[in-house]
């Protein structure tokens, strides 16, 4: 019913996400709301998040693709561009959104953000400060959190 007039673009994107998933990323729509996706991103190798399985939620607003999807981490993560509530500081989710971007490209961007934390454009002031003053220690904390909260169990 709510899904009956789902734009064809969303159907196509969903099909492609399921049939050709991007490496380290899975996204599947919820059964009762095809605009709501359960997402899992594997922590990239060589990053403090390696070995972790991070759950996210992604929602396509009514205006999508004119407006960006709404994405949030559900798994706790220690990252300067992700806050306590799982909100993500990523320009393509805000002013740099383009309707030519897709769910897939958004998730790949988030995966890339895990590989390259950017403390100069922080969402979590404290974590960013930690990152800048003592990166080695911040990375250790991120690894620890990955073990604690993202072990995938």
């Amino acid at each position: 019913m709510a899904n009956s007039n789902l734009p064809r673009r969303i159907i196509k994107e969903t099909q492609r996400l399921l049939s050709e998933p991007a490496p380290g990323i899975s996204a599947s729509p919820s059964e009762d709301n095809m605009r709501y996706f359960n997402v899992m991103i594997l922590g990239p190798t060589q990053s403090p998040y390696e070995g972790g399985v991070f759950k996210l939620e992604l929602f396509l607003p009514e205006e999508y693709p004119m407006a960006a999807p709404k994405v949030r981490f559900l798994t706790k993560i220690y990252h300067p561009n992700i806050d306590k509530l799982g909100r993500i500081c990523l320009d393509i989710l805000k002013d740099k959104w383009s309707p030519a971007l897709q769910i897939r490209t958004v998730l790949l961007s988030i995966q890339a953000l895990l590989s390259a934390p950017n403390p100069d454009d922080p969402l979590s002031e404290n974590i960013a400060k930690h990152w800048k003053t003592n990166e080695a220690e911040a990375v250790e904390t991120a690894k620890e959190w990955t073990r604690l909260y993202a072990s995938g169990a």
């Binding site: 393509i92 490209t105 995966q111 890339a112 953000l113 950017n118």
Partner: peptide
């Protein structure tokens, strides 16, 4: 869509 995993200019893909 890029067929390969991103080894990309940080921070965004």
């Amino acid at each position: 869509p890029h067929p390969h995993p991103p080894h990309l200019p940080p921070p965004y893909y």
